[in-house]
Structures are given as structure tokens and as C-alpha cells.
Design a binder for these strands. Sequence first.
DNA 1: CGAGAGCCAT
Length: 558
Amino acid sequence: MLSRAIPKNLSCIRRYNSSPFGDVYTSNVRIGKLCREGKMDLARKLFDEMPRRDVVTWNAIITGYWKNGFIQESKRLFDSMPLRNIVSWNSMIAGCIQGGRIDVAFLYFFKMPERNIASWNVMIAGFIRHGMIEEAVKLFEEMPRKNVISYTAMVDGYAKIGEMNKARQLFESMPSRNEVSWTVMISAFVESNQFDEARELFGRMPYKNVISVTAMITGYCKEGNMEDARVLFEEIELQHRDDVSYNAMITGYAQNGRGEEALRLLVDMICSRLRPDQYTLVSILAACSGLASLTQGKQTHALVFKYRLDTQVSVGNAVITMYSKCGSLLDLESAFEHICTPNIVSWNTIITAFAQHGLYEKALCFFKKIQVHGIEPDGITFLSLLSACCHAGRVKESLYWFDSMKNIYKVAPRCEHYACLIDILGRSGQVENAYKMIQEMPFEADLGVWGALLAGCRFSLNIELAELAAQEIIKLDAKNSGAYVMLSNIYAASGLWRKVTQVRRLMKENEVKKQAAFSWMEIDNKVHYFVGGDASHLAVDKIHTVIIQLYSQMENIT
DNA sequence: CGAGAGCCAT
């Protein structure tokens, strides 16, 4: 025992005495730590002061520079280092990839004197990150030896381009797998909505960690199965629960219309001494939007500043949506102005906000400002603009913008654009023109397009087109309750009562159920719910009086 | 000191 302990201690003493700054090894570790903490100035000071450096010292500082976004400095040091090893080259290649220069990375990979598995893996992952799957496959096939990381990266690559069969085949053919490989495959299934496959794989996975469990939680959330998601979340031991697993759960609640639970989990997260990040607050803001609760929304907005997340664009965008959905139009523009560098999502968000409130002119004004800021409008920009036309009843304008989108801005229309136009045409009584447009579409119409046509038929009571649209919808989705209900309403409005009965019978036969819609509003911290035909509210008489007043006001306008 | 994984906004 003693003989083993003594040389170890002696070697420590010898190493530490070799220089007044501690030995090279100790300083290398300190540089690595400073780099990871983002303290590049301190790391550089230590680097400059070292009397002796080895290749690890250089590699550490070079890696530190590109990881913190200083690619140029990293390259300068790489070019001036006295002696490079494989790690130096690999690190430089990774840095180039991080900086978006896959071409330079490949140049280094090409001219490095000697490669190891990591060199190939770095390059493969780089190609995958840049969507260059063919190049990745080529390297993967050419590389002399592969390890579990090479395989896992390739599985991920196939999954990212939607080649699920190839991903799965490669995964099954791997000589060995670890928790990362399993997690990649599970996430791939979740991403492509193959939840049964994801669940099956998760069950087979021999060792699970918080990352794989979070991937599966996300799967349950996407499926709308919040109960099983919560069970998994509760199974993570407290010390392993981290910000990402909380975010997955909170996002799930927010996206499944369970805002209260999202808010409760945020409180839980803060009590667990975890710091909410931009992911957390984006989802919490979405939860407030879903609840249409300005009170909660404003409190969350305060949290944005408390956690210093107001500089994050994604958070700023979510704040805009929150104020819009909570009906606070006054805060919209100031929220937008607070975003330091608005991206295309920010512009689309504010245009959508004005569109939803029928403010076409405002929406148009922001649309015109986009290009002044050097940003190109995308498909969603035009969808927002078309939706602004729709909510403001601007038929001519919608056709104009649809046209310029294709011909001037060179943005290819998708089903959503057609659905929006068809909605507008239908509302203005031009349901035949809408149908003509569907026939001229360069690709197959989807549920949304046919749904818009069917909805349009209720304005002009076009039975023939309504039946056609409903048929197409049921072809695509047999259990689509909306189509049955809408068709039956159109029959009813036309006095075709026998047809109404037929549709209702068909619904029963096909086990299609329509769940009752409801609305709600928050007054003085109390939420009031309203269901169609429901007279249970205490102030129901007063409410009806106001509704009648509103009706007569609306009639006076039109 | 280098390679592969989970959470966000229109």
C-alpha cells in the first residue's frame, strides 16, 4: 500500500516545483476550465504567461477560441503553433464547421498528415449538420475503421433528412450501441411522429438516462399523451431532473392547451433551484397565450426581465404573440421595438398579430418595412399578409399579394396559401372561383384546402360543392367531425332536413363525435366558461341583453 | 485539448 502511495505523492511535488506557475499540466487544465466558462481573456493571460507550453496547451486555447465564437483567432493560433498533433487538426476542423465553413474544414481534413477515427467523425458530423448527406455517406463508407460514434452520427444524418428506413436499418446493423445511439433513434421516431416505434425502442433500451427519457417525454407530449409524459417525468430522480426535462414537460402542457399545469410546473422548476431559460419562458408565454390571460402574461413578461432573457429574439417573438392573443393591442408595437435584431419570425409574428385583429393597414405597414431591414419575406410572411386580407375582407388585395408573392418575391405557394385564398373567396360568395383555384393548383389539395372550400359553401349554400368538399375531406380523414357538422349545417340552412338526418346517422355509424366547443374569459382573477346553449352563468340574462345590443349595432354597421 | 443525443418563437 505504502509503496504505491509514495511515488504518486513524490511525482506531484516534483511536478508542482518545476515552475512558479505550477506545471504545464495544471495550467492546461485551468485554461480548459476558463475556456469552458467563456473567460477567454483570462485563459489568454494564463496562456501568455506560461513559461513552457505543450501541444495540449495550444489545443486547449484554440478550442476555447472557436467554442466562444472567435474562429479567426483560433485559426491564427493554429497556423502559428510550433507543433501540431491529430487533436489540433481535429479541433480546427470542428471549429471551421462551427463557424459555418465546411469548405475550409474539408480542406484541413484533406491536407492533415494523419487521421484518426475522430477526424473522420468530425467531418461526417459536419457534413450532416450542413445537410450534405451524400458527402457524409461517402466519408462513412470510405473510412478505414468505424466506431459507435460514426454509426450514431450517420443514423442521425439519415433521420434528419427523413430517411427513416435507412436510419433504422443502420441502427439495427450497428455492431454495438450505447445510450446515445438509442436516444438518436428514439428522437428520430418522435420527430417523424412514429410514436409506437419510439415507445417500443424506449422499452427495449437497456440503460436510460435523463436525455433518453426526455426524448421519450417529448414523444408522449407530441402525441398528446400528457399522462404518460408526466409519469416518465416523475420517474426521473430529483437530482437528475434538469432544465431540459422541465422544458420538455412545460412545452408539452403549453402545446396541449394545459396552460395552468405549465405554469404550475414553472413554479416547481424554480423551487427546484433550476433557472428558467429562453426555452422555458417561450413555452410559458405560449401557455399564457393559450389561456388568453393578460394577468399571467404580464407576470411572465416580468420574469423575462428578471431572468435577463429580454435580449433573446425567440422570447421577444413569444411576448408579441402573448400580447396579441391576450388582446392587448397597445403593447404589441412596443414589444416589437424592444427586440434588438428582429428576424423573419419576429416580422411574421407582428404581421400575424395585426392580421388576427383585422388591422390590414398595420399589417401592410410592417410588411413594407421588412425589406428595408434587409430581410427577405418567406412563405409565412405571405400567409400572415393573406390572413390580414382575410380578416379585413380585402378580396382584391389578397389576389394581388398572392400574385406578387409568386411572381415578384419568388416564394412558392403551399397548401396553406391556397386554403387562405379559398377562405377569402368563399366568404365573399365566390365559392365557384375558389373551386376553380383548387383545380388549377399545381399539387394535391390537403385537408385545410378542402375544409376552407366546405366552409365557404355555407355562405352561398352551394350544396353540390359542399358535398364534393366533404367527400374529399372524409377521403383524407374519415373521423373528421368538422366536415360532417359543417355539411349538416349547410343542409339545415338550405332546408334539406332529410339530408341532415342522413349525415347525423352517418356520423353515428362511423363513430364520429363532435366535442362541444367552449370559450372563456378572465375577469378579476376569476375564469368564466361559456358553452353553446348553456344558460348556467349567474349573469346570463344580462349577457343576453348585451348580445342583443351587439347584434343590432352590427346590423347598423353593415 | 478533438467526434454522436433531449427542450423554444410566426
